[in-house]
């Protein structure tokens, strides 16, 4: 079963990391990815550029509306994601707990609907 981990965090806190904090965070991600790869559970991961560069598209009544900014104005935004192949939710939650941002932000764990949807990853 594929699970996507959506990582939410306050962007300014990540931008204001000290070099040591940034290094600790990267080491955490590297360890997590190594462990997941060793178990053939790692599919993909990505860090998103800040929401100041985000654009949101909506189609309403047949018309497209393109607006500057992220989907919603909140304190915490989607800053990155992982996709893991796991046995069940407990295994997925174990990976989610290892994502460094779980400590300051939040990690939303969502099962993916179909295998095909990541065929191109």
């Amino acid at each position: 079963m594929l699970y996507t981990m959506l990582i939410y965090a306050a962007e300014e806190s990540i931008e204001n990391y000290t070099p040591e904090q940034r290094e600790r965070c990267l080491v955490g991600h590297r360890h997590l990815q190594q462990r997941a790869k060793a178990k053939d559970a790692f599919l993909a991961a990505g860090e998103l550029v800040s929401t100041s560069s985000a654009t949101t598209v909506r189609r309403r009544d047949g018309k497209h509306r393109v607006v500057d900014g992220p989907f919603a104005e909140t304190k915490e935004h989607l800053v990155g994601f992982y996709i893991f192949d796991c046995e069940d939710l407990d295994q997925a939650l174990a990976y989610a707990k290892e994502i460094p941002h779980a400590g300051s932000g939040s990690v939303e764990v969502r099962p993916m609907a179909h295998l095909e949807s990541v065929a191109t990853v």
């Binding site: 079963m1 046995e87 069940d88 939710l89 407990d90 764990v109 099962p111």
Partner: peptide, 14 residues
């Protein structure tokens, strides 16, 4: 069923 919450006694650590 969708999130596949396991049907088992959790492992010792949990």
């Amino acid at each position: 069923s969708e999130a596949k919450i396991p049907y088992e006694v959790p492992k010792a650590a949990l």
